Each structure stands twice: as structure tokens, then as C-alpha cells.
Amino acid sequence: MSHWLEGFVHWTAAFGLNYSFLLDAYQRGSMVNGALTTVLLCAFTIVGSLLAGLALAAMLTSGKPYLARPARAFIEVTRNTPTLVQLYCAFLVLNMLLTQAIGAANPLTPFAWVVIVISLHKGAFHAEALRAGIEAVPSVTLEAASSLAFSSRQLLWNVQLPLAMRFALPSLINNLIDLVKMTAVASAIAVGDITYASIMIWTQSDNVLELMILLLAFFGLLSFVVNCVGRALEAKLRMPGYGH
């Protein structure tokens, strides 16, 4: 590995790029740990945002005003305010109040706050995609399910949501790609992701360009992986007779 890294550093030096920090064990370890932290953030927020989106979509389409109205208000506020502002409000205000209430026993770390805020933020976008998918389910399908004595809850979970997921999958995958890029805001509250690790390195060395190239490549690769998985799911879950 060390020979490979040395070769890479010398090869990039020919183009005027300084990647010598990769030969330092501490800085290289910081980048690796930052990359792993970013991957974990993506994994947790993808799951969390999909669960939040399902819950909000179920509330929106429940037909019950006491569920639909709070969900609609939450979605409108969340979609129309910046993620970074939401993160600051959560971490600097809610976290402070929680710490004052329960003291040092506060279980929510900066990592947890990032997962919560991004999950809820993207969950609002997922909810709209799923709502559109639910409303796109053919009425004859719903009538057929109703004739089998399905309750409204069974109709939602066994008929509407499985079909809505297929209809909404392209929009959901687009939202998840945006979510991957959004995890970079974690560095704003000192979560040790790859962006924060890069900032720590370039404050000590004059290699901002080199680290920005690495960041672009890393997030581009993560987004590409999510896109490929999404395309594979679309192909696997495609329903015969739709889209042709």
C-alpha cells in the first residue's frame, strides 16, 4: 500500500498537485476515518429518511385532518428552510435545552443530530413523492381491494404503498442522491466526516485544491453507487404494462 501511495503522490506531483499528506499516517488515518463516518451517515440517514417519509405520507393520505394538517405544516416548513439552518437550530438550541434538562446524560451526540435533521428534512421530500405515488394508484385497483373487505389501514400498507413505492422510486432515488451530498453539512457542527477531516488538513497545509478534488471524487462515487442501486431496484420492481 505504501508503495502504491508513493507512486500516486509522485505521479500527481507531475501535474502540480500536492498529495504528500497521504504519506503521513495520522492525516491519512483522519481521511479514512472521515470517509467511514460519511458512509455511516449516509446509511443511517437513508434508512431514517425513508421511514420518516413513509410516516408523513401515511399521515397526508390518511383522510384525517388531525394527522394530515400537522404533517402538511411540517413538510412546508422543512422544505422551505435550509438544512444547515435546521441543523444549527437543532444542535445549538434543542440540544442545549435538552442538556440543561437532563445534564451530562444527554444521549444525543452531534452525529445523532445530523442523522435526525437530515432524515426529517429529506423525509419531507420523500413524503411528497410517496403521496403522489399513492394518488397514482388506479381506482380500479383500490375498488378490487375494497371488495375483499380490506380496511383502510390494510388498503394503505398492502396495496397503495407497495404500488406507490414503485411509482415514486425515480423521485426517491433522486432525493437519496441529494441526501448523500447533504451529509457534508455535518462538518458544520464538528462531526468528523470526510469534509471536516479535509478542512482540518488544509488549515495546516496549502493543499485546498487537492483535497477538494478528493472530496468531489468521493461524493461523486457515493452518489454513483446510490444511483446504480436505484436503477437496479427500478428494473427489478418494474411492473409489466406500466411505462410502455
Rank of each mutant, 00 (worst) to 15 (best):
A58D: 05
R72N: 12
N80I: 04
A57K: 03
Y66V: 15
T37I: 11
A55F: 15
M31S: 02
Y26F: 13
L36Y: 10
I46L: 14
G53C: 01
G48M: 05
A57P: 07
R69C: 08
A58T: 14
G34S: 07
A43C: 12
G34V: 07
F74S: 07
L40H: 11
L40F: 12
Y88E: 05
L54I: 15
R28P: 00
L67N: 01
L84M: 08
P70N: 01
L87C: 05
A25C: 09
T37A: 06
M59C: 15
L41N: 08
L60W: 02
S49C: 14
S62G: 07
I75C: 00
F74V: 10
C89I: 15
A35C: 11
T78F: 06
V85S: 09
G53K: 01
Y26E: 14
L50E: 04
T38S: 15
Q86F: 02
M59I: 02
S49A: 13
M31K: 02
S30W: 11
S30E: 12
L40V: 13
L60V: 07
L54R: 01
R79N: 12
A52R: 03
R28L: 08
R28G: 10
S49G: 06
L67W: 00
L51M: 12
G48D: 04
T38K: 07
G53Y: 00
A52L: 09
P65C: 00
A43I: 15
Y88L: 15
T81Y: 06
T61E: 13
E76T: 09
Y88K: 04
A57W: 02
Q86W: 03
N33Y: 11
L41P: 09
Y88Q: 03
A43E: 05
D24M: 06
D24V: 04
M59N: 00
V32H: 08
A71G: 00
S62C: 07
P70A: 01
T61C: 13
A73C: 12
A73N: 11
G53W: 00
P65T: 03
A58S: 14
L50H: 06
A55G: 06
Y66L: 15
T83K: 10
L36G: 07
V85I: 15
C42E: 01
C42P: 06
T38A: 08
T45G: 00
E76P: 04
A25N: 12
R72G: 11
F74C: 06
Y26V: 14
L67D: 01
R69Q: 13
R72F: 13
Y88R: 03
T61W: 03
R79Y: 11
R72C: 09
C42M: 14
M31W: 04
R28C: 05
T38D: 09
L51P: 02
T45M: 02
V77C: 11
T37K: 04
I75K: 00
L87I: 07
F44T: 05
T61L: 09
G48V: 03
S30M: 14
V39T: 09
F74P: 07
M59K: 00
L40S: 12
L67M: 08
A52F: 11
F44S: 04
R69Y: 13
L54T: 08
G29M: 02
